[in-house]
Amino acid sequence: MHSSWLLVCIVLAAASLCAQKLGVGRAASPDEVKAWDIGISPDGRELPPGAGTSIEGKEVYDRRCKRCHGDAGKGGDETALVGGLGSLATPRPLKTVGSYWPKATTLFDYVRRAMPYKNPGSLSDAQVYAVTAYILNLNGIVGASDAMNAQTLPKVKMPNAGGFIPDSRPDTGAGKKKK
């Protein structure tokens, strides 16, 4: 039994190698993959351990984010993070995390990979969870003491989650798609 399993393994391994047509490139180690695998899917499958609340997040935000994004996510030189609910169908839409973003996981992903602007990657995972919780709380989406973590964040329902439709082009001329 043992040896037949071993044979199966050897055959599978050989098949796997043979399937590589050109044999260029080398196998990636699990550690290499883990170190770079920072993208977060909407179901949160890649979310790391750690947790943070809005209360903890305010402290991080005020030190690391406020200078560009303003007090409580408004009025800064850079993108507003709060407000704009109900504005999307008006002549002056305000697209913020609260009014526009369809997935809460995007906030964790983007803050961790790209923020703060001049020092991306400098926040710990717990700090990223906390800042994410704070920005969601400022938008009235989660409570002040709700902890964001790998389980809770993907379950957050964003106000504009249902606001996106597939590409319906071509939408002009003779070849336009029927609605």
Partner: peptide, 19 residues
């Protein structure tokens, strides 16, 4: 659903829906 394919590079239409 990265930042650049949600908050940016989506087409907000007159009815408030976005492609």
């Amino acid at each position: 659903y990265t930042k650049d394919e949600t908050s940016k590079y989506t087409e907000l239409l007159a009815d408030g829906k976005a492609m």
